[in-house]
Write a protein that binds this DNA or RNA. Sequence first.
DNA 1: AATAATTTTTAGATTAGTCTAAAAATTATT
DNA 2: AATAATTTTTAGACTAATCTAAAAATTATT
Lengths: 218, 218
Amino acid sequence: MVTLTEENYIKAIYHLGKYGANNVSTNAIAKEMETKASSVTDMVKKLSEKSYVDYKKYQGVTLTNKGKEVAVNIVRKHRLWEVFLVEKLNFSWDEVHEVAEHLEHIKSKKLISQLDAFLGFPTHDPHGDPIPDKTGKIKKIDKILLSEAEIGDNCICVGVQDSSSDFLKYLDKNDIALGTALKVCHREPFDNSITIKIKTKELIISNMIANNLFVKLS
Amino acid sequence: MVTLTEENYIKAIYHLGKYGANNVSTNAIAKEMETKASSVTDMVKKLSEKSYVDYKKYQGVTLTNKGKEVAVNIVRKHRLWEVFLVEKLNFSWDEVHEVAEHLEHIKSKKLISQLDAFLGFPTHDPHGDPIPDKTGKIKKIDKILLSEAEIGDNCICVGVQDSSSDFLKYLDKNDIALGTALKVCHREPFDNSITIKIKTKELIISNMIANNLFVKLS
DNA sequence: AATAATTTTTAGATTAGTCTAAAAATTATT
DNA sequence: AATAATTTTTAGACTAATCTAAAAATTATT
């Protein structure tokens, strides 16, 4: 059996390991989990004994297949619950994360498969992140950061890099949602801010914003 | 903050205290929680310090108002989730309890108020038990045990005393559900079994069954 | 290559919740 | 009312997860 705490560590390691295929460091995990490095060492030993991770002293960890399976399943549950909260319970996209953090740990195969069906087998969560299917397969879409788009490109918003409440509220305020079409009009060389056009309205967006918004070319 | 374990103890004390207004004994709690009496004593001291219960050594416990508030809130959440599972996710009434045991501990005011609205503010769970409203009020209906009904009474099923899987499956198998109309035809003096009529079909029911099925006279 | 800075691990302590075994209190029985 | 049976509490130990402070290993810098 995998405890709640173990699940959270496995999830953290999964997220940290996703970009940069190498080992995940003790300190990185400690930061992500908001705990101390010594606690991480202890837990990592335990996860290693239970073969959720491969671990060599001072060398960081990587998830085993068994660990990955656990991680992907939590991600699946998290994202399905997020869809439920937004679609059925009228949560806004900046409110769902915290509640889903708890719901994701409920262990019931039937609950999740029925929820999945009830929601119409959604493929993406409210932030545009893909929902792994029941076998753990994740279909990735070819998205780019808005900051990487060229002047003149017509784009559609498909996701966010950062899903902090502040960022999502900024997008709401400026009528940017998933599915919103926009055109890149101008890039200011000094600060890399860009001017975009949504419908007829022009909007200037800082580089930091553009760096956290995924789009696909249309 | 009240921990998950504390919540479960409070809930157990609530259920045990409901019938028989006196103090709940350590052993009764131990049995309900499937744990040892010594563990209960420890926990009961802690709950007393946090003023969820009144406790005097060797005298058992009763919930304080603060404790009752916690208990009723858990019951509300538990029953709302049960409705959700049956109405929206096609669970049968004998499958919901276990999953609801976990869902009931999710702490989010908004989640529950939105869920309540989404379900259409249900007043009873799938077993006929009343759902406390957000202020904690429980409206009780005047139900009697089927075993207490008189020969010739026309009744409608409104709830179950026992909600074990075996009992609920028995009811399913015999086409007895909440809302089912039935008539009490005969009582066998020897074993107190009764003959009931559902639509045109007669069925003999043991006293034990009749003792676990709530009906109202119609 | 030696030293400094950083990261990681170890050692030992702490808290929540549990347990066993023994002691104390209550309740039942003669 | 004394003894027996039962219930409840205490004392001390255990596990999971955490922490602090110090030691060990790694990485960076001179």
